[in-house]
Design a protein around this nucleic acid. Structure first.
Lengths: 126, 126
DNA sequence: GTTCGCATACTCGGATAGTGGTTGTCCGAGTTGTGTTGG
DNA sequence: CCAACACAACTCGGACAACCACTATCCGAGTATGCGAAC
């Protein structure tokens, strides 16, 4: 179990957006060269961030991407959830009908990590 | 990012060992049918638990597997680490020479989850 | 001068492919207990 | 009665294969801006 590279990229991208807040739309190409990712793959990640309502995209000439929310509102968890999804890290899937005690412990542990990620905001690290 | 099925199996296996503590060696076949896994795959998981010193195996007739430590010593984290390894969930891998602030936040969050898993013992759920 | 059209600069999304980890299976080798057989 | 031997019940570990998610690329389609030509 590891976080995907896409999550790493997304966090750094969002941090970059926060740092550049107030400037014009950021276009795909400059972002890609700054991040050292291929533009096409970057666009996939950005699309996920758009769907999560963290950034917005404006097509056409002079288009690009920009923050949707104000920078103080965006937590680490917002970004992670946009990429990794919102499912629990551990689900039991044994045939037991009643709730699995092991699953409960695992999800309590996960909640502690999530709480920390919800408290931390991107502004804290730029 | 999700926990692997093997981790789920391992936790249930170890919980079963704790519940059956004091009885004779548990053999592969009965364990497999109780867990509803194929014996050959189960043996892979058990081998990992042996290497982590959580259980011991005795070959030959009347052989099988049994707990190595006493049941109150085994934490959730011991079992998870045996299967998933001990690497951090998030590593930055960007070319930055200095330590990445994003990585630090992520690993702090992980530490909170790990602490919870270290505190919880298998005995708590049987 | 106004309007139409075309080139340009962008994003969007589906199709495709390589890679690696997870999940299993198969099979031969090694180890221990047990029963049997021959002296 | 006892020792040697064969067999059965186990685990051990490598090789192999199916499958799926992640990572990444390519390309066509859609959309907005701006410039230039035609009227």
């Amino acid at each position: 179990m590891k976080y995907t590279k896409a999550t790493n990229y997304a966090l750094h991208i969002m941090a970059y957006f926060v740092k550049q807040e107030g400037t014009d739309n950021l276009s795909l190409q400059p972002l890609a060269s700054h991040m050292n990712i291929s533009p096409t793959y970057l666009s996939k990640i950005l699309t996920q961030l758009v769907k999560a309502d963290l950034i917005q995209s404006t097509p056409g000439a002079n288009g690009g991407y920009s923050l949707r929310k104000t920078k103080t509102e965006i937590s680490f968890y917002d970004v992670i959830q946009a990429i990794e999804g919102s499912g629990a890290l551990f689900t039991c899937e044994m045939d037991e009908n009643r709730t699995c005690q092991i699953e409960k412990v695992m999800q309590d542990a996960e909640a502690k990590m999530v709480n920390h990620l919800k408290e931390k905001r991107l502004v804290d690290v730029v």
